[in-house]
Design a protein around this nucleic acid. Structure first.
Lengths: 233, 233
DNA sequence: TGACAAAATATGTACCTACATATTACCGTT
DNA sequence: AACGGTAATATGTAGGTACATATTTTGTCA
């Protein structure tokens, strides 16, 4: 970072970013070669490469071998989402976390679950329904299916003390993740569980994880009315 | 990637990732120093550094100078979201894109908008309401506020042909972005516009952008019932 | 014992070199 | 003009060296 002599890759990145912001380069425009930029700024090509890689990761520019670097013609809004363990999310908001197991039983997986996993045939799986509480009030209801073939240990866990959310995230790292967000209306059961009005609009966060090709779990996290999912800071 | 002789940073990354997956290293555990891993795998430390950086970016591992590298004690689910221009999103689904301006006028920004921008005092802004269509049917209703101080050009644009979404994304790159997702119930006006049942649950994608500290725009993209936002592939 | 300074140490960055790889561009042939 | 093969070229990656930087650990002195 040597603010004096040498240029850091962040400085190079910011300088190029700024040239895009100010319109020096617009959507679709081609930027100079890394080597030329390096000479211009009198730094190493590897420094420019690092800067460009970062701009590319953030979706601002596109790089192709031999094709060079150009500002994305059709920009995308790209953001990183962090979804912590629910307990942590509650505690970080300054509230007291509570947890309550609603139901735990084996059952044949419904078609939606089988489809989420991309499996051929339906099969029995472990269904765990539980409620996360914030300061004693309902916060998130989770409706989860766990594949017992992939995680045989779950047969011996009752999930009364520790949530499946927490156990899985600590003990079952995944190699693939699918996320989807959508809205549903609270039916009478959900309204009852979440202490919400029937028909209230609820944000649902659906997560499915695999380890290699083996399905681990799929969960619908059904939030209480007013819940917001944020990115960034 | 020379699958034969040398080890690529991706291979190094995957090998370490696998050791975490298989439980060789669990949450909170400290990994060997980069230099030792490099020696083990007989590759350069810079290659290990690259691999570790990637694992760190993906949230699996935490690195601290002198502290070393350790598996995150409280893992987070981290994912990258790409939100394209609405026109592109529709076209990519194979449907015909349509656009319809509903209203465009200057108005004092309501408190919610002022708060989203982190401004002190309310001020007049340009409000643009428009409907995006997919195969002639409502797809997303966007309710947008644009700051005319930051983008004076908008005074001369009528947004009848090109959507504000598209114009802004092509002409107003941002340096900061805030995203939030939540669910609302359709009121009668929204139900009418989106051809949905009154009270239907709708996913809202709210986006606010700045260039440096200057607010550009804030928009609520109100989706039609059944809309799902996906990550990854 | 406690506070503070100094040494030790693991990661972060910058530079340079040498190839690898993916594409585009060019040119000759038909 | 269309096709196809080859050369040219910009980015991607690996290796290696030398420092920079941030912490933790250790050590010293009051």
């Amino acid at each position: 970072m040597t603010s004096d002599s040498r240029l850091s890759w962040r400085e190079v990145r910011d300088r190029i970013h700024e040239q895009i912001l100010t319109g020096r380069y617009g959507p679709g425009d081609r930027l100079p070669r890394d080597a030329d930029i390096a000479e211009d700024l009198s730094c190493a090509r590897s420094t420019v490469q690092r800067a460009m890689q970062d701009l590319s990761d953030s979706g601002l520019v596109e790089r192709r071998r031999k094709g060079g670097t150009r500002v994305r013609a059709e920009p995308v809004t790209r953001a990183t989402l962090d979804i912590p363990i629910t307990r942590r999310e509650v505690e970080q908001s300054g509230a007291r976390y509570g947890y309550q197991l609603i139901r735990r039983r084996m059952a044949p997986a419904p078609r939606g679950v089988v489809a989420a996993f991309g499996l051929g045939a339906p099969r029995p799986m472990l269904r765990v329904e539980a409620l996360h509480l914030s300061d004693g009030r309902p916060y998130i209801f989770e409706d989860r299916w766990i594949c017992p073939e992939t995680s045989p240990e779950v047969q011996n866990l009752d999930f009364t003390g520790q949530s499946a959310n927490e156990w899985l995230v600590l003990n079952k790292p995944y190699s693939r993740l699918d996320l989807r967000f959508y809205a549903i209306s609270a039916n009478t059961r959900l309204a009852d569980l979440l202490e919400a009005e029937p028909g209230a609009a609820l944000l649902v966060i659906e997560r499915t994880t695999w380890i290699e090709d083996a399905p681990i779990t799929t969960v619908k996290a059904i939030t209480t009315p007013g819940y917001q999912l944020l990115t960034g800071t």
